[in-house]
């Protein structure tokens, strides 16, 4: 599996993918973190759905990760696209047959591929945290936010915890993307379906059907990223979201192992 991991890493290191991911992550974190601080006195709010996070709230130990945590779902969507495209392209390009001739154990292919993409997601989340934290420190003075508690013992603990949660959520969305890639075997279809489902359809369903977010995979994974949300606990997100991914993952892994490679 180590050889699969290293081979897959070579593909993930390609400049176009690395640069576009850096651009997406830096852009995302720069936008969300800047808006949080620059619009702190705005009557329209500085957070999602018009909510306002005040300077005093941002001065608490968890203030440093407020912006970073709020981007968990979007970082997850980036991961979903990467995991889905990297998996499905093996079918659409016909390269899966090359991989299976060189490594006939399909579970090792799947496992190594997943691990390498998980590592890519880890680097991506680290970059996001660094960008968001840097901007937070940079704009804190402008927004009259006191940063003393951010670097306290509690602040650093929250920082680590939030990073872990965002990484778990990123992995969750990425797993969803990989499942779609294996099922649909087309990068465009799996990326489109996955991102439209998470960004659009689940949001609409949540607005229309009360309480349905307790059962939607994207909402559940997003809850893990945010460390829990009003009406949807972190534990439920972790448990139910985890069960969804485990069951779906097992089904597609079985299909991947059994399915003929005809293209």
């Amino acid at each position: 599996m180590i050889r699969v991991f290293l081979a897959e890493s070579r593909k993930l290191r390609r400049p176009t993918l690395v640069l576009s991911t850096i651009l997406a992550v830096v852009g995302l974190e720069a936008l969300f973190t800047s808006l949080l601080y620059l619009l702190i006195n705005s009557r329209d709010g500085n957070s999602r759905r018009g909510e306002t996070i005040s300077a005093s709230t941002l001065s608490l130990p968890n203030g440093l990760v407020a912006a970073f945590s709020s981007t968990a779902t979007l970082l997850g969507v980036v991961a979903l696209c990467i995991f889905a495209a990297q998996t499905a392209q093996e079918y659409s390009l016909g390269t899966l047959r090359n991989l299976l001739v060189r490594q006939p154990s399909r579970m090792k292919i799947l496992g190594g591929k997943y691990l390498s993409m998980a590592f890519f997601a880890l680097i991506m989340d680290l970059l996001a945290l660094i960008v968001s934290a840097s901007i937070s420190f940079g704009l804190a003075g402008h927004a009259h936010v006191i940063t003393k508690l951010w670097t306290s013992h509690t602040g650093l603990h929250i920082l680590a915890q939030s990073f872990g949660n965002v990484f778990l959520a990123t992995l969750g969305y990425g797993t969803l993307g990989m499942i779609l890639g294996l099922l649909l075997r087309s990068p465009i279809s799996s990326v489109a379906l996955g991102s439209i489902w998470v960004i659009l359809i689940e949001s609409l369903l949540t607005l229309v059907v009360k309480g349905i977010d307790r059962w939607l995979p994207g909402q559940l994974i997003g809850t893990v990223g945010g460390g829990g949300m009003p009406g949807l606990s972190y534990q439920r997100g972790l448990l139910v979201g985890g069960i969804y991914l485990l069951v779906a993952g097992a089904v597609v892994a079985y299909l991947f192992k059994r399915r003929d490679v005809s293209n």
């Binding site: 070579r10 593909k11 390609r14 176009t16 993918l17 392209q89 390009l93 016909g94 390269t95 047959r97 090359n98 001739v101």
Partner: peptide
């Protein structure tokens, strides 16, 4: 075993 099946299939961006 070395094999080339149904034409060459590689990653276009590499």
């Amino acid at each position: 075993v070395g094999a080339m099946i149904e034409g060459p299939a590689f990653y276009p961006a590499l």
